[in-house]
């Protein structure tokens, strides 16, 4: 591969600004998510009661996406993500409403202390002691310890993905990345038609993360094809893309 690969073209020929199945900015997750529950209602409950909402499910199903989408409704609330390398003794800042991604990675003793600290932080906010709420993702069942700490627990198991739901998610992504003048009706057939989504659904089931990864690669292949077509039209001018 000693030849310098030519500069890849942008996504203009596909009617897009960027690959719709690439990474999304945190503040956009709220717009793109197709939630499994009414996040606005959950947000209201988090503001007004001693609630713990727990998103559970396997990897790649959308637990963290739901949690982040919920967090956009609480920009002032701390959000802590405990990565695979995070210490079980990581300091998690307490607040009247507290967000914790991968809560099972925190040591049980520190989790219980956090539950108490959140309730105390909530109590300082008003005399009715109705605040003090948690939003978590977890692979483990945290309900018993949350209930023991005095929380009402709402558990949402993120699993299962219908083809119709997948279509909705993909359409939102396409709209997000579309250039002016490119409509869903024109983008769908060329980029992500129903037979393609059916194949993806059959292959990956409800593993949305894997489906998005495969769709990302599919779009990159289409982009290469456009670049090759351009190359065939204007030999020797492949590098100089007309933006």
């Amino acid at each position: 591969m000693a030849d310098a690969r030519t500069r890849r073209r942008g996504y203009e020929e596909l009617g897009l600004f960027w690959n719709p199945f690439g990474t999304v900015e945190a503040e956009r997750w709220s717009e793109l998510i197709v939630p499994r529950l009414d996040l606005d209602a959950v947000a209201t409950q988090l503001r007004t009661s001693r609630l713990a909402v727990v998103f559970r499910g396997h990897m790649g199903r959308g637990k963290s996406t739901h949690l982040r989408a919920l967090h956009t409704r609480f920009p002032e609330a701390p959000f802590t993500y405990l990565g695979p390398e995070a210490s079980p003794r990581t300091h998690v800042p307490a607040a009247p409403v507290c967000f914790l991604d991968e809560a099972q990675r925190l040591a049980p003793r520190l989790r219980r202390r956090l539950y108490r600290q959140v309730i105390r932080a909530g109590a300082r906010r008003g005399p009715e002691r109705s605040m003090g709420a948690l939003a978590l993702t977890s692979h483990e069942d945290l309900r018993p310890e949350l209930e023991a700490a005095g929380y009402t627990v709402v558990e949402s198991v993120i699993e299962g993905l219908s083809e119709a739901n997948l279509r909705t998610i993909v359409d939102r992504r396409l709209r997000w990345a579309a250039r002016p003048g490119a409509s869903l009706e024109t983008l769908r057939p060329s980029l992500a038609d129903d037979p393609l989504l059916a194949r993806m659904h059959a292959r990956f089931g409800d593993d949305l993360r894997s489906i998005q990864g495969a769709l990302y690669d599919h779009l990159e292949t289409l982009r290469d094809r456009e670049a090759d077509r351009e190359h065939d039209r204007k030999p020797g001018e492949r590098v100089e893309a007309q933006v």
């Binding site: 591969m1 637990k63 993500y81 991604d101 993360r209």
Partner: peptide, 19 residues
């Protein structure tokens, strides 16, 4: 590097190589 949740992953793509 991509990822949140359990899937923080590093991806690599060689654009040019002259051995």
């Amino acid at each position: 590097v991509h990822g949140a949740g359990t899937n923080r992953t590093t991806h690599r793509e060689l654009r040019y190589s002259d051995p």
